[in-house]
Amino acid sequence: MIFGMPWWIFVLILFIFFSGYMAFRAMRAEKELEKHYIERDGQVYMKRIEEEREQRLKQKEQLTN
Rank of each mutant, 00 (worst) to 15 (best):
M1A: 09
M1H: 12
M1Q: 11
M1L: 14
M1I: 09
G4L: 06
G4N: 08
W7Q: 08
W7N: 03
I9A: 04
F10M: 01
V11K: 15
V11F: 03
L14C: 14
F15C: 15
I16G: 01
F17E: 03
F17H: 05
F17I: 14
F18R: 05
G20A: 07
Y21L: 09
F24S: 01
F24K: 01
R25F: 11
M27Q: 03
M27C: 01
R28T: 10
R28P: 02
E30M: 04
K31P: 01
K31Y: 05
K31Q: 14
E32C: 02
E32I: 07
L33V: 09
E34V: 06
E34R: 10
E34G: 10
H36K: 12
H36G: 03
Y37F: 14
Y37D: 01
E39Y: 04
R40T: 07
R40I: 14
D41W: 08
D41S: 10
D41G: 03
G42P: 00
Q43D: 03
Q43C: 04
Q43L: 12
V44E: 06
V44L: 06
Y45E: 15
K47N: 12
K47D: 12
K47E: 15
R48Q: 06
R48K: 11
R48T: 12
I49T: 05
E51K: 15
E51N: 12
E51D: 12
E51C: 01
E52D: 11
R53C: 02
R53Q: 10
E54C: 08
E54L: 15
Q55V: 01
L57V: 08
L57R: 13
L57Q: 03
K58Q: 06
Q59F: 00
K60S: 15
K60Q: 13
E61W: 07
L63T: 08
L63G: 02
T64F: 15
T64D: 10
N65W: 04
